[in-house]
């Protein structure tokens, strides 16, 4: 039995379907949900969190449907890009409130607080009112809220939105640790560098459907085919590339070659070396995720974050 399983899930708002027949089966680890605006990422999270009832299909959290058995929602925690904390009380009071919502006793709360504190280092903000915190501190408090009662599945909907790079890196580090400790983390983001840095797996959503899933390279190769690499050399590569049956294309100082994988690139580099051509640099010209994102977005040339 999978930790999280969706079968033919369609969901939306009024007559507009934001998810259409989604099938997913996920185990622990950090899974990045990638897709353009309106792809259905937030709707997917809302459905899994038990917030939005699907119009068809089934969801199973270790065999239980959160929409039929609300107790199953204990296994899931939802971290939105808004902190959703009450701003006029302290972080401790906010955490206490959510522990009461979850039905924890005072003793259980203190235990949970100690555990969460050790994972997220909250001591400096625990007694501060939320409205006095920076965005990064408030988001840390929000992660602490999400981790109360030790949920198995953590849904993070663009959690680093508005965070400075250091705060964002700290949060990603915490989430990587949590995933390494056996939790299933679903993480949506528009930030492709962030996605490539943290993802164990990628789920590509487009127009409410899962287009592909797997490791970043696997998904990129499935969706966008050969990858463009650049070779910077001391001399002109035109004769060599013609001999290899490849077009001689340039992008600034780089000669461009399309390869299925890095092994194919290595063969070209070896051919250069055999011909006595000095190679300064050989590298992918586009990040795998970036190519993927452009492909899914259907908007070549659009600025990426």
């Amino acid at each position: 039995m999978s930790t999280l399983e969706l079968r033919g899930v369609s969901a939306g708002y009024r007559d507009k379907l934001a998810l259409q027949g989604v099938d997913l089966s996920l185990e622990h680890g950090l899974h990045v949900v990638l897709g353009p605006n309106g792809a259905g990422k937030t709707t997917l999270f809302r459905v899994v969190a038990g917030v939005l009832q699907p119009q068809s299909g089934t969801i199973s959290l270790l065999g239980e449907d959160p929409h039929r058995e609300p107790e199953a929602k204990r296994r899931v925690s939802y971290l939105m890009h808004r902190t959703a904390l009450a701003s006029d009380i302290s972080v401790r009071d906010n955490l206490m409130f959510w522990s009461r919502v979850l039905g924890l006793s005072s003793a259980d709360f203190e235990r949970e607080l100690e555990r969460v504190n050790s994972e997220l280092e909250l001591a400096d903000i625990l007694e501060c009112r939320v409205r006095t915190l920076s965005r990064g501190q408030a988001q840390r408090a929000s992660v602490a809220r999400a981790l109360l009662a030790n949920p198995l599945i953590l849904l993070c909907d663009e959690p680093t939105n508005g965070l400075d790079p250091i705060a964002a890196e700290k949060l990603r580090y915490s989430l990587r640790l949590l995933a390494a400790n056996g939790r299933l983390i679903l993480y949506s983001t528009h930030n492709l560098q962030e996605a490539s840095a943290i993802a164990d797996n990628v789920i590509v959503l487009s127009e409410g459907r899962v287009r592909e899933r797997g490791t970043i390279d696997f998904v990129a190769s499935q969706l966008v085919g050969p990858r463009s690499y650049g070779i910077r050399a001391k001399t002109d590569l035109t004769p060599l590339l013609k001999r290899l049956g490849r077009p001689a294309l340039r992008d600034g100082a780089f000669w461009l070659v399309d390869c299925r994988d890095e092994a194919e690139l290595a063969e070209i580099v070896q051919a250069c070396v055999r011909d006595g051509i000095m190679i300064y640099e050989a590298r992918p010209m586009q990040n795998a995720l970036e190519r993927l994102y452009r492909k899914v977005n259907h908007t070549p040339g659009e600025a990426l974050s």
Partner: peptide, 17 residues
């Protein structure tokens, strides 16, 4: 508006509760 309602719905309670 602050998102608390959405979190409450994601807590282990039925909509009626």
């Amino acid at each position: 508006s602050r998102g608390g309602l959405e979190l409450l719905v994601s807590a282990p309670y039925s909509h009626r509760e």
